[in-house]
Design a protein around this nucleic acid. Structure first.
Length: 809
RNA sequence: GCUGGUAUGGCGGAAUAGGCAGACGCAAGGGACUUAAAAUCCCUCGGUAGAAAUAUCGUAUCGGUUCGACCCCGAUUACCAGCACCA
């Protein structure tokens, strides 16, 4: 068969007849399968697209055959920096290049032969979509979850533009390689931290890869400790430190404030002023990457001021040091050199005191300093003898009595910075009024103007657009006002797209609540692991926020998640232009067809692992599919038939049903490689019996039908062609998956391994239905076994029916 | 450093629940068919010893539990990924 022609033919027919469109009436039986949508780049589909979309489609096709009403939409995450950079370089407008790329990519995606429901397609850069992204922003704002504050951002001094975190590679600009600096700008944030606790707790409910859940837990970084109040020695002011080790408080010999701490300016003594100012200036200049480097020496300077340790009244020096982060906890820490690695180094360098207050709980614990484990409190007054676990609570509680401490939970998670000084994104729907301040513009969409200039001069094209920025009045008071010049992070667009798909053409609302309550959550979500702490976390947050606003009534967007592995270049490195190891699927698809290519991706890798690309096996899959074709045609050809059902027929039938059982278990697990292997075994069995021993054409044909059905999720075009060539008139796509006949899978006799002291010694074939006691009797009576026993009496006999008999002497 | 993961032939990878390690395929070697090639079909294919039957070793390393361990437990090593001065 000419696979390329066949694929064209069926693809077209399926699309015309909408063989597999979602049935909205049968929503109770829905199965929402979603692949992460992609950015419409100018390049063609790469192997990763095929791997994700092709094989997830196989999963979806399997679910259809199992009777599920599958919803599998597709769309484009179409805003983003590459199109804008392309515009700066070539002058081609992002809107033009993006829609062109989308048209090209749609065609390519259709070639895969996936059953995407294009009627529900969404494109995030179209005003019909982004008006609702802007609506989302407004809703978050109204509910206190969007706010503006001054914050440091990544700034490339050479490109004169703000960079996203992902564009900063080891502290350098990914485009021009110059060092990125920090710049303070007023930015919009989403208050994801309000959901930190729920985002953490609900992970337990999810059928997600453990490593992804672990990454999110890590990212959220919950830490339970205490806030402790230190008062200045002169009694004028106080400040708090956060610690998880209040049990070490008696060992505190100094405190350190972040250089940005608001107290620094007021408490520094005249004598130390120059030094402190110089240090703060220096810190402001160093970039964040350098500052956060663990390798860097712990620097700091003394402010000249003193504070009182509230637990014992001791006077301790107040230092500033750049290893203390202003943005975490209280921006101040206590220094306990005896029980903290960093504090120890800091104290040694600056000649600060070291008092041991924790002893190892057992004598054999290493007593060298710093001792950072939990132990038993010593030199701690009334707390002596308490364990660290008890003490870290007891000390805070004691202080709480005097109002000098409280139990406190901190999270590492920060609020989500969503402003971008870019053009190609959804405009932030806010108007700045000189009288009313920031005011939402709810006349949506706030459309991106088309006629903008792309110059890398540091100002976003939007900010320079006179009409967009200034031709606006305040919705509240009507005064002349200005628009917010920034656009939203593209992750905002992708944080809710799965909610829009089921109701993609709703012009009045972002969605119908009753409808998406039925359609969601997504039953199977498939995409790359690199989104663990970005998209997957944002989407969960937005879902929970919308739930609390009443727009939907479920807690989590993605019930079950699978990460496809990464297909690497043949050299084992990630495919990239700079490595020169990019393999294009086109050549293979053009030579062998989409089905062969998909089958090879299925067979050659463990799906969740991926691995280096190698095309050694692709010919083998081509050959194998040809083989399937030959057998299918021979079964339905001029085949001599009888109604015999002898041993050969029984055996073929057995393999057939074992295969059905195995493949039926493999597909839902994304275990495509073993599914193919099992089907190859069935073909081998057919080959073994074909035309020689099996004379029963009905069995042969039924077996062949089952094989084609099992194979159709992976090779839909070829199997559809064979299905029709063998006289069927329905579409195989909507056939039911074969059902395993358990009774047929059992052989009447089994070969058991006989072991002596766990070493294999003999093989005995017995009736498969025998009970262990009967097996033991037969085995011990066997001639070979009696010979090997040589008169000895076994101490013990272990019988595993269907497997082995182990005789212990 | 922390967290998670991985480690099985020449290669990609199997192994339900602790029960015959290496399924399935690739590569390699041999053979049939053919003038020849392609295609197809058959056989061999973890190491060592042996003509063979067979013996023996073997799932990163070391140890343990068990009649029996790729699988469970303890320690170690290497690699991959994410986070990384989070007090």
């Amino acid at each position: 068969m000419d696979k390329i022609q066949v694929e064209k033919k069926w693809n077209q027919l399926w699309n015309e007849q909408k063989v597999y469109s979602f049935d909205e009436k049968d929503v109770d039986n829905k199965h929402y399968v979603l692949e992460m949508f992609s950015y419409p780049s100018g390049a063609k589909l790469h192997i990763g697209h095929w791997y994700n979309y092709g094989l997830t489609d196989s999963y979806a096709r399997y679910q259809i055959m199992k009777g599920k009403n599958v919803f599998q939409p597709m769309g484009f995450d179409a805003f983003g920096l590459p199109a804008e950079n392309y515009a700066i370089k070539t002058g081609v407008h992002p809107q033009d290049s993006t829609f062109h790329n989308i048209a090209v990519m749609e065609e390519q995606l259709k070639n895969i032969g996936a059953m995407f429901d294009w009627d529900h397609e969404i494109i995030t850069c179209s005003p019909e979509y982004y008006r609702w992204t802007q609506w989302l922003f407004c809703e978050l704002y109204k509910h206190g979850l969007a706010y503006r504050k001054k914050a440091p951002v990544n700034w490339c001094p050479s490109c004169n533009t703000v960079l996203a975190n992902e564009q900063v590679i080891d502290g350098h600009c990914e485009r021009c390689d110059s060092q990125v600096i920090k710049k303070d700008l007023t930015q919009w944030f989403f208050k994801i931290t309000a959901y930190a606790e729920e985002l953490l707790n609900d992970l337990d409910k999810l059928d997600w890869p453990e490593k992804t859940k672990a990454m999110q837990r890590n990212w959220i970084g919950k830490s339970v400790g205490g806030e402790i109040v230190f008062t200045l020695a002169d009694g004028s002011e106080s400040f708090k430190v956060f610690t998880t080790r209040a049990d070490t408080l008696f060992g505190c010999t100094y405190v350190v404030l972040a250089p940005e701490h608001e107290l620094v300016k007021r408490i520094t003594t005249a004598e130390h002023l120059d030094e402190v100012n110089a240090y703060c200036d220096e810190v402001a200049k160093t970039n964040e990457i350098e500052r956060l480097s663990t390798a860097k020496e712990k620097t700091g300077v003394f402010t000249g001021a003193y504070a009182i340790n509230p637990i014992n009244g001791e006077k301790v020096e107040i230092w500033i040091g750049d290893y203390v982060l202003a943005s975490y906890g209280t921006g101040a820490v206590m220094g306990v050199p005896s029980h903290d690695e960093r504090d120890y180094k800091f104290a040694q360098k600056h000649g600060l005191g070291i008092h041991r207050v924790i002893k190892g709980a057992t004598p054999d614990v290493d007593d060298s300093l710093p001792f950072c484990e939990y132990g038993v409190m010593v030199n701690s007054g009334e707390f002596d003898g308490m364990t660290s676990e008890q003490g870290r609570v007891a000390v805070v509680e004691k202080l709480a009595e005097k109002g000098l401490g409280e139990i406190k939970t901190n999270y590492r998670l920060r609020d989500w910075l969503v402003s971008r000084q870019r053009y190609w994104g959804a405009p932030i729907p806010v108007i700045h009024c000189p009288y009313c301040g920031e005011v939402l513009d709810e006349n949506l969409p706030v459309e991106l103007p088309y006629d903008v200039e792309f110059k890398p001069d540091g100002t976003s094209p939007l900010a320079k657009h006179e009409k967009f920025i200034h031709d606006v009045t305040c919705p509240k008071c009507g005064a002349k006002a200005t628009r917010d010049p920034d656009t939203l992070d593209t992750f905002v667009c992708s944080s809710w797209y799965f909610l829009r798909y089921p109701d993609a053409h709703n012009a009045e609302n972002p969605w119908d609540t009753a409808w998406i309550d039925k359609m969601l959550p997504v039953d199977k979500y498939v995409g790359g692991a690199e989104h663990a702490c970005m998209h997957l976390l944002y989407a969960r947050f937005i879902t929970k926020a919308l739930r609390d606003m009443g727009y939907l009534h479920f807690d989590e967007p993605f019930k079950s998640l699978v990460h496809q592995g990464v297909i690497l270049g043949p050299d084992g490195n990630r495919m990239s232009k700079s490595h020169g190891n990019v393999v294009s699927p086109d050549e293979y698809v053009n030579n062998y067809g989409a089905d062969v290519f998909r089958c090879y991706l299925a067979f050659g890798f463990k799906y969740t692992e991926g691995g280096p690309w190698s095309d050694d096996g692709i010919k083998a899959l081509n050959k194998w599919l040809d083989r399937v074709e030959r057998f299918a045609l021979s079964a339905y050809g001029d085949y001599p038939t009888t109604s015999d059902f002898g041993p050969a027929e029984k055996e073929l039938n057995r393999v057939r049903h074992i295969t059905i059982k195995a493949v039926d278990a493999d597909y839902p697990e994304f275990s495509f490689n073993t599914a193919v292997a099992r089907m190859m075994e069935l073909v081998n069995a057919i080959s073994k019996y074909d035309g020689q021993k099996v004379k029963n054409a009905q069995l042969y044909r039924e077996t062949m039908d089952d094989l084609l059905k099992m194979l159709t999720p992976l090779a839909p075009h070829i199997t559809e062609e064979l299905w029709h060539q063998t006289g069927h008139t329905t579409s195989i796509v909507v056939e039911k998956f074969p059902v395993c006949d358990e009774s047929a899978t059992k052989a009447s006799e089994v070969e058991l391994l006989v072991q002596f002291n766990s070493k294999p010694k003999a093989r005995i074939t017995v009736d498969a239905t025998l009970a262990p006691a009967e097996i033991q009797q037969i085995v011990l009576a066997d001639a070979k076994v009696t010979e090997l026993l040589n008169g000895a009496t076994p101490k013990k006999v272990i019988v595993i029916p269907g497997r082995l008999v182990n005789i212990i002497l």
